[in-house]
Design a protein around this nucleic acid. Structure first.
Lengths: 334, 334
DNA sequence: GTGAAAGCGCTAACAT
DNA sequence: ATGTTAGCGCTTTCAC
């Protein structure tokens, strides 16, 4: 027999299928004897409840559909850890799908999750158009992580990029730096806010005149080009705040290749605290986003809609933290 | 209305639900007029076929259950790219679940996938006991990636670790190295084979007497300790082959911190070609496993069982490749 | 405490 | 070319 059904178990245990159903769901109103008989039969047959059939009749799957825009970025893996842990605690399963870094792939992935009747959706870092997101939200509750959208039906959880950038700059100022440059993240998610946080904090310290921004794009290459641009003209900055870790690493490498020492000649700060930042060989000072907490919060928001029937949108902004490592120090006497 | 059903569409289009079903599945035997009417009604209602109901009646889901042992390791993300691409090509959906690096988590994840009635399972790098894997294979076809098991019902796809290690050592020998040491991967997957490949190749070149192995464990820390052990006594090796990239990076860092230059004083080779290895700042020579191809192959193996009803186990071993970067060079005149 | 029966949304076999 | 009908494996009343 392919996969045994509840009827096979019932027959073998000599009871009705309703009784088997009650046992499988741990109902207290079953006699000890019958419960044992049913469990024995189930074990012998290698029976496994069919979640498909159960979902059909219950009209819900207890599955949360998770879209991860890019598995190659361990940032998302951390968010997922929080999501899975929380979902398990609350009796839900997390099923992932990826968009393979393409907006159209994301749309397909969401469609699949919706056809499989996930009870709700958590989209982490989606590059998808707003209209598609809102469309999905007509079918089930949707929570966005690491991306915000101002649409009534969608909840968002993100980190405070302005505050994070501020932490980075404050740290450098406290060390004594004044010529602090920024390599931005171009059109990337959160890049605009990080640039703003940088500019605002420089101004607050009366360093607006010293502020310099080089164009980047969240890539290693972008970070290297940012350094090239910054060194090409003007006084050399004593510190660089890059919009993310990858571009910070690109900057790091470009600096050392030019014979400049980090942090002796130039300090470098990144953003995200990805796992590479922690490698001793990189040892990058950076800004940490509370990734796991963001994942957990996303699940909580979703279940508020699912179980408590909340209707109004909520937007949760979480606080980032400074992680000091080896790429920052007081400026040398240049 | 919550989610419209096929009956809602049928009513609105003025046809029977079978007709709607045919249209949704692109049947050619539907008149143009009715097809348009149905599609219009479906669009207006925002109808989405219920995969749960469909799966129940078809007794298959067209879903492949994918277990990724650890999303934080981008190695698995690459394998997954291959899996998703291939699955999509062949009309299947890939649904992932992770074990959160714990064997018990993996067992739960598999159980979930089985209850959701995935048509087959691909387990990548599972740390799970063989017995549990065989057990799962009683329910549906199972393919293992990056782990082998000698059980009849399970297919495996892996890379040839012995050959990969051989490539690494051959590369170093060709550069002129003779004192080539190895930092092993302890009990990690494939570690034993890599060590064997190292030993065998050293012997083949008459360097068995020069072979030295330091204990590692696939971690950065392990790589650093390996270097410490190797430098503590005996003649300094001119080259080190580490069992994976992470430990190679640990070695790299330990070497430079001791004032040794790479590759001038010591060459270093890793294994896996993870994304960090490619960072300019690391620029590690390493062995590449054909990860995407492994993922694609896993899907093919699964579908051979699912669609062609293959019964005998297959074991596919794929060829690794050398990727030369900046951490290897001819030995200096030490 | 236990069983019988209805039905979840769909497909498939059969009629027409 | 289109409609009718009988389940898929389970949960959920409702009887007993």
């Amino acid at each position: 027999m392919a996969q045994p059904t509840i009827l096979d178990v019932a027959a073998r245990a000599g009871v009705s299928k309703s009784l088997v159903s009650l046992v499988m769901r741990d109902s207290p109103s079953v006699s000890h004897a019958k419960r044992e008989a049913v469990l024995a039969a189930a074990a012998e047959l290698d029976y496994r409840p069919n979640a498909v059939a159960r979902s059909l009749v219950q009209r819900r799957t207890r599955v949360l559909g998770i879209l991860l825009s890019d598995l190659h970025n361990t940032f998302f893996a951390d968010v997922l850890d929080g999501i899975s842990a929380r979902a398990a605690e609350r009796g839900y399963k997390a099923m992932l799908n990826t968009g393979n870094r393409a907006p159209s792939g994301e749309a397909d992935a969401i469609e699949t999750l919706l056809e499989l009747r996930a009870d709700g959706l958590i989209l982490t870092g989606p590059r998808l158009e707003v209209s598609r997101i809102v469309e999905a939200a007509r079918a089930v509750p949707v929570v966005l992580v690491a991306r915000t959208v101002t649409a009534g039906a969608v909840d968002c959880v993100s980190n405070d990029d302005v505050a994070g950038a501020s932490l980075a700059v404050e740290h450098l100022v406290k060390l004594g730096h004044r010529r602090i440059a920024h390599i931005d993240g171009g059109a990337g998610a959160g890049a605009e806010a990080r640039k703003q946080g940088y500019a605002r904090t420089m101004r607050r310290h009366g360093l607006a005149g010293r502020a310099r921004v080089a164009r980047g794009d969240y890539t290693e290459e972008g970070g290297a080009q940012g350094v090239a641009a910054l060194l090409a003209r003007g006084p050399r900055p004593t510190a660089i705040f890059a919009a993310n870790d990858l571009s910070a690493i690109g900057a790091l490498d470009a600096l050392t290749r030019r014979g400049l020492r980090v942090p002796d000649d130039v300090s470098v700060v990144g953003y995200d605290n990805t796992s590479v930042a922690g490698l001793r060989h990189i040892d990058l000072t950076t800004i940490d986003q509370p990734r796991e907490a963001m994942g957990r919060t996303a699940v909580d928001l979703l279940l508020e809609r699912l179980e408590r029937r909340r209707k109004v949108a909520r937007r949760v902004v979480m606080a980032p933290a400074l992680v000091v490592r080896g790429t920052t120090a007081a400026p040398g006497d240049t």
